[in-house]
């Protein structure tokens, strides 16, 4: 018997999937709205390259979620960019093996 494929290849795939399902369940958007936007992103990406259904699939997923939350004024892109840099700084300032938190960015 072959080894089962992992459900999510990378932790961030699982995380962005869960955020999306959770926001749908709390009523922020319907699944139909999600599927239409996601389908449009996949189609756009597919014009340039043949998507393999792995990381490029979740890259399209993440882009769709960021755009949806930006368009609906739920998550401001500039704020997200600031937080992304804060996390990057936190990783770079955290000693190897220690838990990474946003507080570490000021080091």
């Amino acid at each position: 018997m072959t080894r089962p494929e992992p459900v999510f290849e990378e932790p961030w795939h699982a995380q962005v999937f869960a955020i999306t399902v959770h926001l749908n369940e709390t009523g922020l958007f319907t699944w139909q709205q999600w599927a239409e936007r996601f389908g449009a992103t996949l189609k756009r990406h597919g014009h340039h390259t043949r998507l393999n259904g792995g990381s490029d699939y979740f890259a399209a997923w993440l882009e769709t979620l960021e755009t949806l939350l930006g368009d609906t004024s739920v998550a401001d892109p500039a704020q997200l960019e600031t937080l992304r840099h804060a996390w990057e700084a936190a990783y770079l300032n955290t000693p190897h093996g220690a838990p990474v938190t946003l507080d570490a960015r000021a080091d």
């Binding site: 990378e10 932790p11 961030w12 995380q15 962005v16 955020i19 926001l23 990381s55 979740f58 890259a59 993440l62 979620l65 960021e66 939350l69 739920v74 998550a75 704020q79 997200l80 960019e81 937080l83 992304r84 804060a86 996390w87 990057e88 990783y91 946003l102």
Partner: peptide
């Protein structure tokens, strides 16, 4: 990776 950091940012903000 870059997308992993972007997901962290989303999770933090939300």
């Amino acid at each position: 990776s870059d997308p992993a950091l972007r997901v962290k940012a989303l999770e933090t903000l939300l």
